[in-house]
C-alpha cells in the first residue's frame, strides 16, 4: 500500500525532470499515420505535415464499377481518438448507394462498429471495399441503390456518366476521372 501520509507530510514532492507529455490521441494518431500501409490505389495528402489530425486520402479504384475514378475523403481526428472514430466525409460527389450527396458515408466501422483497436488503415480498407462492392441493401443514396438492384448495366452507365462529369437524373456530378 502506498503511504501518502508518510510520503507527503513534509510537503516534499519530486519536481525535477518532468516533461510535458503529448496527448494520448496525438500519440496514437502519430503511430497510426507512420504505420499506414495503403494499397497502391490510395494516396494521402497532408496540407500541413505538422498537423496529423486533419488529412485527405484519395482512392482510385483499379477494378469494379468505379475503375478510373478518383475519390477524395477528408479525415478529421478528434481529441477523443481512438475512443471515438475520426469523422470521414467524401469530398468528391459520387453516385454510390452508400455515399450520399452531402458526402456522408455509410460504413459500419465509422459509427456503430468502431473499436479503439481499429486504425486509420482499417478505415481506408473499408472505404476501398465500398467501391469494389457497393451494397444496395443498406443504402444512403436510395435511387442509386434501386438502380443497382434492378439493372446493373444501367447502374454502371450511370456511374460512368457521373465520373465523366454530368447529370444522372437531376443531379450534377463533377468529373473525377484520373
Amino acid at each position: 500500500m502506498i503511504q501518502l501520509f508518510k510520503l507527503k507530510k513534509n510537503g516534499e514532492t519530486a519536481t525535477k525532470g518532468t516533461t510535458k507529455r503529448s496527448s494520448a490521441a496525438q500519440l496514437r494518431i502519430t503511430k497510426d499515420i507512420n504505420e499506414l500501409n495503403l494499397p497502391k490505389t490510395c494516396t494521402t495528402k497532408f496540407d500541413d505535415p505538422d498537423d496529423l489530425l486533419n488529412f485527405k486520402i484519395t482512392i482510385a479504384p483499379d477494378e469494379g464499377f468505379y475503375r478510373g475514378g478518383k475519390f477524395t475523403f477528408s479525415f478529421r481526428v478528434g481529441p477523443n481518438y481512438p475512443h471515438e472514430p475520426p469523422k470521414v466525409k467524401c469530398e468528391t460527389p459520387v453516385y454510390h448507394p452508400n455515399i450520399d450527396l452531402e458526402g456522408n458515408v455509410c460504413l459500419n466501422i465509422l459509427r456503430e462498429d468502431w473499436k479503439p483497436v481499429l486504425t486509420i488503415n482499417s478505415i481506408v480498407y473499408g472505404l476501398q471495399y465500398l467501391f469494389l462492392e457497393p451494397n444496395p441493401e443498406d443504402p444512403l443514396n436510395k435511387e442509386a441503390a434501386e438502380v443497382l438492384q434492378s439493372n446493373k448495366r444501367i447502374f454502371e452507365q450511370n456511374v460512368q456518366k457521373a465520373m465523366r462529369g454530368g447529370y444522372v437524373g437531376s443531379v450534377y456530378f463533377d468529373r473525377c476521372l484520373k
Binding site: 452508400n98 465509422l110 444512403l140
Partner: peptide, 21 residues
Amino acid sequence: ECTLDLFPPQVTYPLCTIAST
C-alpha cells in the same frame, strides 16, 4: 487509458438504417 474499453461507447445507429430503414 489502460481500461479505455470500460467506457461504454455512445449509442449509435447505422447510417443506412437511419437513412433508409
